[in-house]
Amino acid sequence: MNSMDSSLKVEIGSYNSGNIPPLMHEIRHALRNLLDNDETTTIDLRGLPMAPGEQQQLLDILGKGEVSVQLDALGKSEITESSYAGVWLIIHYNNNKEVMGKFIEITRMPAILKTRTADMEESLAALQVKLEEV
């Protein structure tokens, strides 16, 4: 490292918005609510002021669980269950690989993964046509 580099050093570790603890409490409440009332909660991470590195800190705290799904619709989406069962992290990208949305969903199964009824109806019709061809 030359002297120029060291004079520009920014101590990122000293930044802290203080938003992680209230967020963790909110996740705990939401998980309790899911267990007691079967209610899903979605938290939009874009709305929270986070210092550089803080979002990564949060993701490190949540950790990775055993399910990880990649969706390919209007760009990729990564859907991962955290090490806390029922707490999912959803990141939507566009075709430019830019992050379009980051959510924590406290649910049994993220809504976007479920197959839509209209899609199943269309599939049924398509299968019928296929069967007639065979």
Partner: peptide, 13 residues
């Protein structure tokens, strides 16, 4: 439809 739902989620956001 999943793409549309994703579009709606990011639009709401």
């Amino acid at each position: 439809r999943r793409g549309f739902l994703k579009f709606c989620a990011t639009t709401a956001s």
